[in-house]
């Protein structure tokens, strides 16, 4: 039963208020893309034990999507941030690096 703070409305929302949306920062591949690129976009998802970036929607709240950085093993939350970005904010990346020195880092 996670608690994530919605960066849009500021509410610390319990999991029952939230709708999960899978991996964050996916790049969409549409018409003209190769089979491999489309397959990766459509089906290949990271499932790390450790640092992960996810999409969540404050479904029973303000209705906005946001992104969360958390550890899938310990459920530690490193931060939540706006969905209107293509990569995690620098301050969150810095915070993760400090807490998880072994982390390979974020890559698109």
């Amino acid at each position: 039963m996670l608690i994530l703070t919605c960066p849009c409305c500021g509410v610390a929302a319990e999991e029952t208020e939230l709708q999960p949306g899978g991996e964050a920062h996916l790049k969409r591949f549409g018409p003209g893309s190769s089979d491999d690129a489309f397959e990766a976009y459509m089906f290949a998802r990271a499932n790390p034990k450790g640092v992960h970036f996810e999409r969540w929607r404050h479904a029973y709240g303000c209705g906005k999507w946001f992104l969360a950085a958390r550890c899938t093993a310990t459920l530690e939350v490193f931060g939540t941030y706006s969905a209107q970005t293509k990569e995690p904010p620098a301050e969150i990346v810095t915070k993760i690096r400090a807490k998880r020195p072994d982390w390979a880092g974020w890559s698109a």
Binding site: G21, R28, R57, K64, W65, A83, Q84
Partner: peptide
């Protein structure tokens, strides 16, 4: 409606 909002908020913001 959720599907529309997903694309508007997360892809074509």
């Amino acid at each position: 409606h959720g599907w529309m909002e997903d694309w508007l908020q997360c892809e074509w913001w």
